[in-house]
């Protein structure tokens, strides 16, 4: 898998490291020479110093062979153009655009960039739903975030402690895939009881993820 990341900061560095650990081939494009030099010392990635929205720079980064382009610059218009360039000129099968202004989420989708990541929306929806983030880990988006898998730890204050699953009112389009109870993995049925310390693997649509967390942890829980 060949990945091109455009952008800077810690996110790009750690994302590149994560991709490396998965065995991906990573190229990073950034305009800032100092940042590029630091990255080049730390990572074995192919680092290109330049404007990622310039077709020639993108080609230098291997856009013709790339499987994935991730545009993470702080400027939405650059991310939009990079993804369009990657798709139209280089036929890159998958592109992701970060939007900083959440309004641009639907605009980008309307303009044909379907894989849009809005950190502002994600963070604000978590805060809005007063979710206890401490008890939730491994937020894993699947299929460009159309489904998310998360691990929720049931604590003493959870309103569902001691309840059977069939008594728990989960929103539609969400299921609890499995429960990790100490060393054991339980595939739950309606009669499975939820206990303190259970790690529940919840599979949800992003829209009702917060609601699922509320049901499992209580809406005021540490929120």
């Amino acid at each position: 898998m060949k990945v091109i990341i455009i952008g800077g900061g810690k996110v790009v560095y750690f994302l590149a490291k994560t991709f490396f650990s998965k065995g991906y081939e990573v190229s990073i494009i950034n305009l800032d020479r100092d940042y590029c030099e630091i990255l080049a010392k730390k990572l074995k990635a192919n680092i290109i110093c330049g404007d990622g929205s310039d077709p020639r720079i993108l080609e230098d980064a291997g856009a013709l062979q790339a499987d994935l382009v991730v545009a993470l610059t702080p400027n939405d218009q650059d991310n939009l153009f990079i993804c369009q360039l990657a798709e139209l000129k280089f036929d890159v099968p998958k592109t992701f655009a970060l939007v900083n202004n959440p309004t641009n989420e639907w605009i980008f989708q309307k303009l044909g960039v379907t894989k849009v990541i809005s950190t502002t929306s994600i963070v604000s929806s978590l805060i809005e739903q007063k979710v206890a983030v401490d008890d939730i880990t491994n937020l894993l988006p699947v299929e460009e975030g159309r489904v998310t898998i998360s691990e929720v730890v049931i604590n003493n204050d959870s309103p569902v402690v001691g309840k059977r699953l069939k008594e728990v009112q989960l929103p539609k389009e969400s299921i609890l895939g499995s429960i990790i109870r100490k060393e054991e993995v339980v595939i739950p049925s309606g009669d499975t009881e939820l206990l303190v310390g259970d790690k529940v693997i919840a599979i949800t649509m992003p829209e009702n993820q917060g609601q699922v967390f509320n049901v499992l942890l209580g809406s005021e829980n540490g929120g």
Partner: peptide, 15 residues
């Protein structure tokens, strides 16, 4: 900024 112009033009046209 070319990319700003491109984005605004697309919004004007498509949206």
């Amino acid at each position: 900024n070319d990319n700003v112009n491109s984005m605004i033009a697309q919004i004007a046209k498509e949206i």
